[in-house]
Design a protein around this nucleic acid. Structure first.
Lengths: 138, 138
DNA sequence: CCCCTTTTGATAATAACTATTCTTACTTAA
DNA sequence: TTAAGTAAGAATAGTTATTATCAAAAGGGG
């Protein structure tokens, strides 16, 4: 995996320990954390970092296309370091947000973009339901 | 169109002027309003209605499947009286939220649901971009 | 038409995020 | 190498959307 500092530099961002910490954490995480979760996760290693910095950092990253923001119906936004368009599932039992591989869908979307009188820049497909694990438990 | 009061009764809700007002407004609106917009729209005809009532009413409606809540990346939720699953477009210039007719997509989704190890209850597809009107202006 | 339960309106409280302000840290230029 | 200027961070105050609380009013079955 490409070095985090290198990526930040290429985006024209000043490289700071806080930014490295947030971006590295997001790249290594599968849980699509929100700002609070990122803050808590980094607290042990970066005890002086402020929650406001997490918010500002995520906002920079979002505008530079380093992360995407997800609205999954919770009060707080979640973040994903995989910026390519891909669908997500949200389990209404355990709350887990997961990535979904779905090339078919991506292909269809591309075709539809051309047919629509609407120029698509970004899209979000979210499936709400019950994940395999929670279904087995029930 | 079926009478609003009748629909509320069938859902087991007490029929109140406030609920009739909110649901009728939503059924006649194409703009996918948020709570504040509904409140403002109803102010002239229902001057004593409280914003809290709008929020509570929308919450009831949502749980009973009378409306669906949309998260389009704005701080406040929007609401749609068309509860059947359908995609939405969000124009990043004028902010307009519109319904999208897209049977192809709905069909594909049905097929995909069966292949997934995830039981889909609800889904949201949101396309962000620039609408036809705003594109012409530019 | 009355009583019981729900709903409403007013407003306080909360949660998530944003703005502000002061301090610290790079970075360039003499 | 250092002084100056700009950018970033920490702490915290402020804002906004939403939820909770509670007394008063209103629906609706009997």
């Amino acid at each position: 995996m490409k070095e985090t500092a290198q990526i930040l530099r290429e985006k024209g961002l000043k490289v700071t320990p806080q930014r490295i910490a947030v971006y590295t954490m997001l790249r290594n995480s599968m849980e699509h954390p929100n700002a609070e979760m990122i803050y808590k996760a980094l607290e042990p290693t970066n005890p002086t970092m402020s929650l406001a910095t997490v918010y500002k950092t995520l906002d920079y990253f979002k505008h530079l296309g380093l992360v995407q923001e997800l609205n999954v119906g919770e009060p707080s936004s979640r973040y994903d370091a995989i910026v390519a368009c891909h669908p997500h599932t949200v389990c209404s039992v355990c709350g887990k947000v997961q990535d979904l591989e779905m090339d078919e869908l991506t292909e269809l979307h591309k075709k539809l973009k051309q047919e629509l009188d609407f120029e698509v820049e970004q899209e979000q497909l979210i499936l709400y339901g019950t994940c395999a694990r929670c279904r087995k438990k029930a």
